[in-house]
Design a protein around this nucleic acid. Structure first.
Lengths: 364, 364
DNA sequence: TAAAGTCATGAATCAGACT
DNA sequence: TAGTCTGATTCATGACTTT
C-alpha cells in the first residue's frame, strides 16, 4: 500500500513502506532513528550496451530509477533525501551511504555541505569483481561507503571491541574484503536476478554490528530487496524499509519473514567501556591494598604511598592514582590503573588485577 | 626564483618552478602536457593534539598551507587549480589527484563539474597505516586517487598489458596495496621528516607506468619534495614541478639530480604474458621438485604433496598449485608460484625461484 | 656478529562522565 | 554549559641498543 504523506507519529517498526523515500522520511518524526543505511541510485552513465569478449551483453543497471538528466538533477535529488534522512536521525545516530565513483563524490560533498560529519570512508573491496572487458581501465574492484555522525560533535555508537574481534584482534581497517552477493543469497525472480544491485549481507552485517546496538532502529530509504532488513532482523535490530517499487517491497517482506534472529544472548558483546567504574579507594576499604602500601611503576622508577582515603602521596604532592601517575612522569595524563603496581611475594602485580577481581564479584 | 606570470611559451622541462601553482599553470600553453598528478592540501581541520597511548604526541599536519576557512574557500581554491590543470592538458592527457575523505569528495565533485571524466577511482591501501589511537573509528588505512580523462570522449593512454604484467597476469584492480613512504626513501632535514606528506615512489611508479608513455610530459602542481619528478626521471618521462616553497623545491631538485634513469631498452615493458609460460610439471619432470615432495606455505601453516604429473594433493583434494593454494586458504584464487615453498637444507625456498632458473635457461 | 629488545613515528577531522 | 576528573587506547616498520 502507498503510505499517506501526513505525519507518521507512531513508527510502524519492522515494516516496508512503499512510496517516495524523501516524502516518507519527511513524514517521520525527527530524531527518531539510530541508523540510516542508504544505497541510492548510482547515476551510472552508460550509453551503449557493454559486451563481454564473447559478445554477450552484460546485464548492467539500466533501470529508469537510475537515470538522471544531469549532475544538477542528481544533486538536487541527493540533497533532498539526505536532508530528510538527517532530520529523522537521533543526535547519536549514524548515517551510512554506499556508492561508486559515478555518484559518491557528489554524495560526499553534499553530505559535508549538510553538516553531517564523516567518520570514515570505507572501501568495500570485492573478491570477485567484474573484469574490465575492454582492457581500457583498471578493474573496478571496489565501492565506497561513507560513515557519518549527525554533526561534528555528535556522540555516535562504535562497537570497537566487536570490530576488533572480527579482525583477529587487530583494529578493523577502512578497507573491507567481501565477496559480491551471489549464490543462494542472490534473490531470483523467474530465474533471473531480482534486483540489479543487491548488496551482500556480509556488508550490512559489519555495518550494523559496528554502529548499532541491539534494539536500535535502522532505516533504509532505498530498501530494494531488503538486505538491510534481513540483517537487522537477524541481529536483533529493528528496521523500516522505504521502497517505491511494490514488487521489490513484496520480495523483501518475504525474504525477511524467513530470517531467523540470532538468540539475544549472543548479541550482547560486553565492551570494556561499559564495565562498572571502581574507585581505587574501594581496594583500600576492602583491605586489598592496605593504607601505607607503596605502589611503584613497572620499572620501579617511581613510587608513591597509599593513604587511607585512596589517594596517593609522593615527594612532590598528592592526588588520585591518575594525577600522581601523571605528575611523577611529568606527563599530561596517565591511567593510574595500568601504571601502578604493588609487590606481592616479591613479585610486581598491577593494581588493575584487583579491580578485575572486584568487577568479577559485581557481575555475580 | 619566482617565475614571472606572463605566458610561458617554451616549457622548461625537467625543472621545478617556484610560485603559485594555479598562476603558473595559467601561464603555460594550453593542451601541452600529457599528465597532471596532483597531491593538493587535504584541508584536515585538526583541533587538538592527538596522543598515543604512551602519551607521545602525534606529529600531525598543522602547516599553514593546509588551513582553509571553510568548505567554500577550499572549493574555490580547488576549482581554480583543477580548471587551470585541465586547460594545459592535451586532449589525450590524464589527470590524477589524490586525497583523503576530508577533501576527496569535494575534489571529485568539482572534477566532474569541470567536465573531466573519471575513469577509475583508485584506492591506495596502506600496509602500515597509523592506528586509531582512541578506538573511536576504523583505522583510516587508505587514501583515494581519481584518474580522469580530459573529457568524456577523450582518448587517453592506458598501458593495459604493463599493468597486467605488474599484477601477475591478472588485470590490475582499482585497489593498490603499497606501504607508506619511510626508511631511506623518506627525505630528512636536520634529522626530521622534510615534508609531512611525502608520497611513496611506488605509487607514482604505477601511476606513470599506467598512463604515460616514455618521453611524455608530466606536471605536478603540488610538487613538494618531488616524488613525481624523481619517478618521472627514472622512468624516462619529462616533468615540470610547481611548488611555492623554495625549501621544498631545492630539496626536490637535489633529490631528482641523484636519480638514475633506467636504460631506455628497459622502458618498453616486457609483460609477463610474453615471458615463457613454465608449467609446474616442468619442475617435476626435471627433477628439481621430486614427486612426493611436500610443499608448504611460507608460515608452514598448510602443506600439500607433489604428484608426478605436477598436480598437488592435500587432505581435502587435489589440483594445480594455484587451485590447491586457493583451497587450503579458502581463498577465491591464489598464485601458486609465490604461495608454495619447498625445503632445502632446512631453509624454505619459493618454488618461483626454480621457475626463474628455467626461464633464464630459455633466454639463452 | 647475530638475535632480540627498545623506541620512534606515519595526511588524524580520535572521550565521556560527572559536577 | 562550562569546567573538572577519570581513565581508555596502537600497528607496521625502521632505527637503534642490548645481550
Amino acid at each position: 500500500m502507498v503510505q499517506r504523506m501526513s505525519r507518521i507519529h507512531t513508527l510502524e517498526v519492522d515494516s516496508v513502506l512503499v512510496g517516495d523515500s524523501t516524502a516518507l522520511m519527511r513524514a517521520m518524526p525527527a530524531n527518531s532513528v539510530d541508523l540510516v543505511f542508504a544505497d541510492p541510485p548510482y547515476n551510472l552513465q552508460l550509453n551503449n550496451d557493454l559486451r563481454r569478449p564473447n559478445n554477450s551483453v552484460v546485464d548492467g543497471v539500466d533501470d529508469e530509477w537510475d537515470k538522471f538528466d544531469d549532475f544538477a538533477t542528481y544533486d538536487r535529488f541527493t540533497r533532498d533525501w539526505i536532508a530528510a534522512a538527517k532530520r529523522i536521525l537521533k543526535p547519536t545516530g549514524s548515517f551510512w551511504v554506499i556508492g561508486s565513483y559515478h555518484n559518491i563524490y557528489r554524495v560526499g560533498a553534499i553530505v559535508q555541505d549538510l553538516g553531517l560529519w564523516i567518520l570514515n570512508d570505507i572501501v568495500w573491496r570485492k573478491t570477485n569483481p567484474m573484469p574490465n572487458f575492454r582492457g581500457k581501465r583498471f578493474t573496478n574492484a571496489h565501492e565506497t561507503m561513507l560513515w557519518c555522525a549527525k554533526d561534528k560533535d555528535a556522540r555516535y555508537t562504535f562497537n570497537y571491541e566487536t570490530m576488533k574481534g572480527l579482525n583477529e584482534d587487530l583494529q578493523m581497517r577502512s578497507d573491507w574484503l567481501i565477496p559480491l552477493c551471489g549464490g543462494p543469497e542472490r534473490l531470483k525472480l523467474d530465474g533471473r536476478k531480482a534486483h540489479p544491485t543487491q548488496k551482500p549481507e556480509a556488508l550490512l552485517h559489519r555495518v550494523l554490528l559496528a554502529s548499532t546496538k541491539p534494539g536500535d532502529l535502522v532505516v533504509d530509504p532505498f530498501f530494494g530487496t531488503g538486505t538491510t532488513g534481513a540483517v537487522a532482523k537477524r541481529l536483533g535490530r529493528r528496521f523500516i524499509g522505504l521502497e517505491r517499487d511494490e514488487t521489490y517491497a513484496r520480495l523483501a517482506r518475504e525474504r525477511i519473514a524467513a530470517v531467523l534472529p540470532v538468540p539475544a544472548e549472543d548479541l550482547t558483546i560486553q565492551s570494556k567501556r561499559s564495565e562498572p567504574r571502581v574507585p581505587f579507594g574501594t581496594l583500600v576499604e576492602r583491605g586489598m591494598i592496605p593504607p601505607g602500601t607503596v605502589l611503584v611503576d613497572q620499572s620501579r622508577r617511581w613510587a608513591a604511598r597509599v593513604r587511607p582515603d585512596g589517594t596517593l602521596i609522593w615527594a612532590n604532592g598528592k592526588g588520585s592514582i591518575h594525577q600522581v601517575g601523571a605528575e611523577v612522569q611529568g606527563a599530561p595524563s596517565c591511567n593510574g590503573w595500568t601504571f601502578w603496581y604493588y609487590e606481592q611475594a616479591g613479585q610486581l602485580m598491577p593494581i588493575d588485577l584487583l579491580r578485575q577481581q572486584i568487577r568479577a564479584e559485581y557481575a555475580n
